[in-house]
């Protein structure tokens, strides 16, 4: 199973970016092999609108099954949810800490967006 983390860095020791849509990248970790990949999200950082929607589609295409991030708006959540991607909220400092919390079952599966959209 592949799990994505929103981040501004390039390694598992990088900080977890609390933002989803406007995070500059996603680190995608294969939980079985422990190998990781990086998905660039630079285009969404500068989007005038709909950054979260665009970012969510990147994760859909990367065949990700779960996302760990700080916050997620309603539109992005709808895309992730429709694509069967589980969303976990975390306020951990780094990706590694967030992963530990995930593996120890400390992160619970969220049932909805935790922030309002830019327009609501």
């Amino acid at each position: 199973m592949k799990l994505a983390f929103s981040t501004g860095g390039t390694t598992p020791d990088a900080p977890l970016d609390p933002r989803f849509g406007r995070a500059s990248a996603f680190l995608v970790l294969d939980l079985e092999t422990k190998e990781f990949d990086l998905i660039d999200n630079g285009q969404s950082v500068g989007a005038a609108q709909g950054a979260g929607i665009q970012a969510a589609q990147r994760l859909v295409r990367a065949d990700v099954k779960g996302l760990v991030t700080g916050h997620c708006g309603p539109k992005a959540f709808q895309v992730l949810n429709s694509a069967g991607i589980d969303v976990y909220y975390s306020n951990a400092g780094t990706i590694r800490e967030a992963l530990e919390d995930f593996e120890n079952g400390k992160l619970s599966l969220s049932s909805g967006a935790d922030v309002r959209g830019h327009w609501s």
Partner: peptide, 14 residues
């Protein structure tokens, strides 16, 4: 305007 999102075999409209 990022008003559409394509999933595996469907598309969402915002």
């Amino acid at each position: 305007f990022n008003a559409l999102a394509t999933l595996k075999e469907s598309t969402l409209v915002f």
